[in-house]
Design a binder for these strands. Sequence first.
DNA 1: TAGAAACATCGAACAGCGTTCGGAGTACTT
DNA 2: AAGTACTCCGAACGCTGTTCGATGTTTCTA
Lengths: 246, 246
Amino acid sequence: MSERQTSDPTAALRLLWGEHPEPRRGPRRGLDLGRIVAAAVELADEEGERGLSMRGVASRLGIGTASLYTYVPSRTELTALMLDAIVAEAPLPEDLPGTWRERIEAWARRDWAMFRARPWALRLTERPLLGPNLLAWYESALRALSENGLSPVENASVIESVDAYVQGVARLTADQEENRAGGDEPWDARHRAYIARRVDFSAYPLWAEAAVGDALGGPADHFESGLRMLLDGVEADVRRRSERRD
Amino acid sequence: MSERQTSDPTAALRLLWGEHPEPRRGPRRGLDLGRIVAAAVELADEEGERGLSMRGVASRLGIGTASLYTYVPSRTELTALMLDAIVAEAPLPEDLPGTWRERIEAWARRDWAMFRARPWALRLTERPLLGPNLLAWYESALRALSENGLSPVENASVIESVDAYVQGVARLTADQEENRAGGDEPWDARHRAYIARRVDFSAYPLWAEAAVGDALGGPADHFESGLRMLLDGVEADVRRRSERRD
DNA sequence: TAGAAACATCGAACAGCGTTCGGAGTACTT
DNA sequence: AAGTACTCCGAACGCTGTTCGATGTTTCTA
């Protein structure tokens, strides 16, 4: 471990924004950043966050581990590049027809889909390094909301709430799903079995009732219902503010 | 690294629920689980999640690292015990007077305060091992909502949405704050400086507008406004369902 | 009471991690 | 042709969680 305590984001930002000072001497580089980031994403897709390592990325590229560090100052920068890369993969719902609510819903669902497809990305968001694609992603959310009458500053707050909700649900379901996966007798089944055997249900009557019939709707339904509630609240807020302005 | 792939939660659950088979032979134990968990929590409070290590906990207790493993099968179980322990520290808002909405708000704020005080706890929630305190915490949320007319199954969905939101915002602000901290010239300032120098603001007009006046309200205000919107939506949902039932 | 069994403790080691160092080779500049 | 700046990378450092085996301690059994 001991990921270096990078107190300077400049190196990462330079890579994100494509500042590569062409070297004047020495042999040609065998690779470029794009290939490296692509390999890292592939590795994370296959092995998950646990399997993502500098050694793994290097060996997948057929180079020595130390060579990676001639392209990227540290793991922090690599993960930032990975995040900015996968954010760019799906098209942004910028100019969709419809209401601002439909557009921000599409924006939220896009993120939800990304985190569902790549749960490992949830662990890569710790250092919010603003790359060009992340910035475009953010701008697209502001544009989606732009006709609701709120100021960009107010809408930034809305976006952060929606983002927090999306990432929160994505994390909860990812953790849950990881526990359901696994060998012949899965983790989750054993967990339930122990609880059922050991816990006095009458001490937790409401939980007992909720736990019995928990088979209604998968994570997708759940995500949608929470998103609907959150955006209902946003809509009410928008109405309230516009009335106050009249 | 390489936290063991515990495919069996039984050991952790046994510890959480207080099943300690008294040993019949051998020397007395020098410590008990409570002391160990308390030391681990102290260490995490002081050093953060990065500084939490089995070696660190052991040396804080004045024992060898290997001895820790006679009390706890692995790090996974220790973190589960830590989470269950800190969840129990603040009183649950079970029988507060007021509406269901006021009660669930208090419940959400309690969590928010916990994650603000102990950001490291956000990284310990990966394996949702149900201990007695976590179960009581969940039951208290169901009880808070119990008078809203929804079934426990429906309310479980509401709770998960609120929980996801709380953890999501807590994580975003924790990450943000960690970046603002640090030496003389903080990370965040350098980040802004680079972006301001390098990025063409006219390509991201709304973001530019939002980024200028971002000094209105700290994370607490932001948390409250999002929570209010989410619960406005829940309230609307409750009304809708109760109308449908009439 | 002696011996065996079961336990606690822990130094040392293992495998894996991110990262750094120093040397070898390569291509461009002067 | 010499020098320089670069790429590449095996080996190592310090860290992590975890395991092994030896040693000591207590208690139960014969």
